[in-house]
Design a protein around this nucleic acid. Structure first.
Ligand SMILES: NC(=O)c1ccc[n+]([C@@H]2O[C@H](COP(=O)([O-])OP(=O)(O)OC[C@H]3O[C@@H](n4cnc5c(N)ncnc54)[C@H](O)[C@@H]3O)[C@@H](O)[C@H]2O)c1
Ligand SMILES: NC(=O)c1ccc[n+]([C@@H]2O[C@H](COP(=O)([O-])OP(=O)(O)OC[C@H]3O[C@@H](n4cnc5c(N)ncnc54)[C@H](O)[C@@H]3O)[C@@H](O)[C@H]2O)c1
Lengths: 217, 217
DNA sequence: TCAAATTAAAGAAAAAATTCTTTAATAACT
DNA sequence: AGTTATTAAAGAATTTTTTCTTTAATTTGA
């Protein structure tokens, strides 16, 4: 198919760009629903309040070309974005810590749109083990090692209390997990090749509170 | 140089810096627990795997000075960070949409560490109205306007389904909300002076999945 | 058919953020 | 007391990211 894909010569797409891509995708899907067949970068930029040239640069990572005076083909662009982000594949994950946040994530239906499929959850709480949330079984954390041998899961979602996060993360890595989506506040110390994406709520709170304070002086 | 300006013209702290600050705070609190009285930027940088000069620059926003060969006073730095971020004040908020994610946020105890206090939740679901989660009452969404008159709440947490997010956000603004913590995928179109912090889970998923794909060639 | 307007693409410039370098301070050690 | 090693601070350089500018394509409308 694509010859250049074999070589890792293509530079990594920057994190700011990657983070914006799902926003475009969500908007484009809305537009598609409304029957919009073509859409231009200025239109997207206007709605998402960002620079149109930024939109063009961001979308160029998909390889899709737009036509002058017409814009991009909505359908084609959606597909290319999903392909690029891996949202149209099934990316299996397991979740450890089926508490408040963990349960919310398990019940979250839109994960499917991200191609993310939580195939099992693990917990140490006797009360939770055996139950299900959002159709996902909560299993005994002790079974993590035995089960992960069969399943070939690359993604781990970490929603335990902070104080056990490091230990659980290490267990995950020993079970073959290559990427961890970390919702705890812990600063995970893991081998360099493990991909860690920390979603720190407090970072958002910090920006929000500070900006609010900045505004009223 | 104009000396007569009494207005706080201090430049806004950059978003990357703001987002890192809670990480330092969390780490410093851990260190304080362990009895560490002084800590140096290189030590912090090593543990959080970031550049020591970056640490110094980031922490300088608090106004706290470190001593050469000793580092920063742990206690003093923690206090200054909390003060700067507004974490030691009580920042009242209300939450709209007491569903899966909303309930998790309501039950989240660590919010107190962020000085964030959800004083009430609102929902349209008859079944949920009247119940409580984490000690927070779920009220009828229709009462939002009447209640917000008395309460002087500046922060709104938005965890409704995506399709009603814009309407709810507008209602919030009309009720005096100045800053919205948005957990939905909606691209909120609001007056410019309203602070919107969107915590988009899909952005993190995008980075995680893409990096995972990049790594296995 | 041809001019006008809109647009993507490519590259340049600007802005922002990070990393590197130098300097001065100071505590610990000799 | 003097020396050395460590460190924060300040500023320079680099890198990254965003915004601006130009160009070429192409559809629409005259
Ligand atoms: N609840 C939220 O809205 C929220 C928001 C932001 C961040 N977080 C973070 O997410 C994490 C979880 O928060 P929560 O509110 O869901 O807590 P929680 O206590 O409700 O859930 C933690 C779960 O982990 C389980 N657990 C404990 N030790 C375990 C272990 N060793 N192995 C496996 N499972 C174990 C517990 O039994 C529990 O079910 C925390 O780090 C918190 O800071 C939560
Ligand atoms: N659940 C998750 O883990 C998760 C993760 C990321 C993002 N999100 C986002 O958070 C939002 C909520 O997700 P969820 O899983 O909690 O959904 P949910 O359906 O469980 O909760 C939504 C709640 O909002 C209420 N609601 C509906 N219309 C309302 C209105 N007009 N006014 C007030 N309340 C109203 C519903 O009654 C319900 O209780 C969605 O935008 C979703 O994309 C959720």
């Amino acid at each position: 198919m694509n010859e250049s894909r074999k070589y890792k010569t293509k530079k990594q797409v920057s994190e700011p760009t990657l983070k914006r891509l799902p926003g475009y995708l969500y908007f484009l899907e809305q537009q598609k629903e409304e029957g919009v067949l073509n859409i231009s970068a200025p239109t997207i930029g206007k709605k998402l309040s960002c620079d149109p040239t930024q939109v063009v640069k961001d979308l160029s990572v998909t390889g899709i070309k737009g036509k002058p005076r017409v814009g991009y083909n909505t359908y084609e662009l959606i597909h290319a974005l999903e392909e690029f982000l891996g949202f149209n594949r099934i990316n299996e994950a397991f979740l450890v810590g089926a508490g408040n946040l963990g349960s919310a994530l398990m019940a979250y239906q839109e994960h499917q749109e991200l191609g993310l499929k939580i195939i099992a959850a693990f917990d140490t709480d006797e009360v939770k083990i055996g139950k299900s949330v959002g159709g996902i079984h909560i299993l005994d954390y002790n079974k993590l090692f035995t089960l992960s041998g069969r399943l070939n899961v690359k993604i781990g979602i970490l929603t335990t209390p902070n104080n056990v996060a490091q230990d659980v993360a290490e267990d995950m890595v020993n079970c073959g997990v290559r990427a961890i989506w970390n919702f705890t506040s812990a600063n995970l110390d893991l081998p360099e090749d493990v991909i860690v994406q920390t979603t720190s709520m407090s970072s958002y709170a910090a920006v929000l509170l500070r900006r609010l304070n900045d505004s009223d002086k």
